[in-house]
Simulated assay, not measured.
Amino acid sequence: MIFDEYSIKSQVRPVPNFPKPGVTFRDITPLYQSPRAMRMIADSLIQRYVDSPITHIGAIDARGFLLGAVIAYELNKPLVLLRKPGKLPADALRQSYQSEYGESALEIHRDALQAGDQVLLLDDLIATGGTFLAAARLVKQLGADVYEAAAIIDLPDLGGSRLMQDADIPTFTLCAFAADE
């Protein structure tokens, strides 16, 4: 199947003034409701990483879990969950961060990664970069390296992808939306 950025973008639903006034939320649920779009997204990421040195897929809570599970399965890699606080049952590390909606945090099990692991971080989109930067800090605290941070959507006007690149975190997205789109 051939990747078509327009086809992906056309199925992302803009929701004005959600979760607060002035914000246009980019809803990816229509992508998951389309088997063709879901296959296009998954196949594009699988092709990108099939011959890469990644050892683990780091899926970010919660929409990153949807894509992360598929990619981990197809690439036969362990899936590491980066969860919201209080959701992991064993000993975990926590990293706080600022998002576009306020302060939040992520956690990862202390035994999830080790030195030398190469982690592909996955989430639905890159906005301010806070979530990905927190995930990368957790990966590094465990001695592993972030191979790349990947998402379906980049919102470059919010500056997250630039902050991530400035922090030496390679990024990859399938499409981008300008603020006025």
Rank of each mutant, 00 (worst) to 15 (best):
L66Y: 07
I8N: 11
A178P: 00
I54V: 14
D111S: 12
P89N: 02
Y73G: 11
L138G: 00
T24P: 10
I46Q: 10
R110F: 02
L81K: 04
S161M: 08
P85A: 03
P53H: 03
I169P: 00
K140N: 12
T173K: 02
L106E: 01
P19W: 09
D145T: 15
N17Q: 09
S96H: 12
V139Q: 08
V15R: 10
L138T: 04
G130L: 07
L106P: 04
P35D: 06
R36V: 15
D154S: 09
P14Y: 03
L122A: 00
A134L: 01
P14K: 05
V146H: 07
G159L: 02
I41C: 08
I60T: 02
F177H: 11
A135I: 07
K84Q: 03
L79F: 05
A176P: 10
A90I: 14
F3N: 01
I126Q: 06
D124H: 11
Q47V: 05
R36L: 15
I54T: 11
R110P: 05
D154R: 02
S52Y: 04
Q114V: 12
V23H: 09
D168F: 12
R162C: 06
T29L: 15
Y6S: 15
E103W: 01
G86W: 08
S96D: 15
A144C: 08
R94M: 09
L82V: 07
L81E: 01
K20N: 04
P35N: 05
V119Q: 11
Y49R: 06
L163D: 10
M38C: 13
V12M: 11
A115K: 12
A136W: 14
R137C: 09
G86L: 01
K84H: 04
A69P: 00
F172R: 01
M1C: 12
F18W: 15
N76A: 15
A134C: 03
G58Q: 14
A72G: 12
I108Q: 04
R110Y: 07
R110K: 15
